[in-house]
């Protein structure tokens, strides 16, 4: 290791906020949600001024919230450091998704590494009947949590190819059965233009043409620490690397599970999209499969690059 690299490493390790991360050579942004929303906003479908024109699936992705993780039984849980985390909350409507986005452009193509500490919860319910068979350990609430995803939206320079990398944690299937696997998608996310041109029918899953366009990531079986109640928050480390020079995902790490993504084909759009040169968007989402609100919390986010 060079003297400069060694010094940088020492500085990072001594920084109590950054030392829990593993950034590449340049930190593009570090978001501590005790400092505000840091540019994460609600995704909205395309329109030209009339909100009625937004296609149904993309008109209600809900505004993100700065959450103190406060619950009815214990009060405020707080985040890893400080009080606040970024929270995405669905409606209490089956298949409703909340999606937040942060929009940048890129200077060069290469490695883009997304890191975060996250947790996920379903809203507390009070249906005594649902507690039938409760053993005091397995939380009924865990089966009321659907899935969450981390994704991006990238467009090579003007008239370049557009594609979206994505990793989804599928906690339950549509019937409420625990799946607990990391998934990748096999089709593009239908765009407003595709739908208006009749290329695809209105989609039911925002990220894919068909709801079943998903495959398990090799090694993606990974129960996470839901921890027994709807109000116990345990933060998980996640690192996801994309190589925009190859239009490929590289690796996904969640806690001690490291998954090689290099053999996975990232779907690429047909044709070109105007007005998106060097697009580099980051997205977070959570989806409920039941009539219970689902929440995704991020303590902080660090995105770094090798350019």
């Amino acid at each position: 290791m060079s003297a400069v690299a060694s010094m940088r490493d020492s500085i990072l390790r001594a920084d109590t906020r950054l030392s829990k991360y593993h950034p590449l050579s340049r930190i593009l942004f570090y978001d501590d949600f005790d400092e505000g929303v840091n540019g994460w906003c609600e995704l909205v479908g395309n329109h030209a001024g009339n909100l009625d024109d937004i296609r149904e699936i993309a008109r209600d992705f809900r505004p993100p919230q700065l959450s103190s993780c406060t619950f009815f039984d214990i009060g405020t849980h707080g985040s890893i450091e400080g009080t606040y985390s970024l929270k995405l909350a669905t409606r209490a409507v089956p298949n409703h998704a909340a999606i937040a986005i942060k929009r940048l452009t890129y200077m060069r193509r290469g490695l883009v590494q997304f890191e975060t500490y996250f947790t996920f919860k379903a809203e507390q319910t009070f249906d005594r009947a649902a507690l039938s068979g409760w053993d005091g350990n397995k939380a009924p609430s865990e089966r009321q949590f659907g899935d969450f995803s981390f994704s991006n939206d990238i467009c090579d320079g003007e008239n370049g190819k557009r594609y979206m990398g994505l990793v989804r944690y599928l906690n339950t299937d549509v019937d409420g059965n625990l799946v607990q696997k990391w998934m990748h998608k096999t089709s593009v996310q239908p765009t407003t233009r595709m739908e208006r041109q009749g290329v695809v029918p209105p989609n039911q899953d925002f990220h894919t043409v068909n709801p079943d366009d998903w495959e398990e990531i090799p090694g993606g079986n990974q129960p996470l620490c839901f921890n027994e109640t709807a109000s116990k928050v345990n933060w998980h480390y996640l690192k996801w690397i994309m190589d925009t020079s190859r239009r490929r995902m590289v690796e996904l790490q969640c806690n001690d599970n490291v998954m090689d993504l290099s053999s996975i084909e990232v779907p690429v759009y047909d044709g070109h999209y105007h007005g998106l040169p060097n697009l580099l968007n980051f997205l977070l989402d959570v989806r409920t499969r039941t009539n219970v609100r689902n929440f995704l919390y991020l303590d902080s986010v660090l995105v770094s690059v090798d350019w």
């Binding site: 909100l51 937004i54 209600d60 505004p63 919230q65 103190s68 909350a89």
Partner: peptide
Amino acid sequence: KNSTFTSDFATEPYE
């Protein structure tokens, strides 16, 4: 956002 209601409603909880 441009939501139409025909009966009583409440907005989603916001922290």
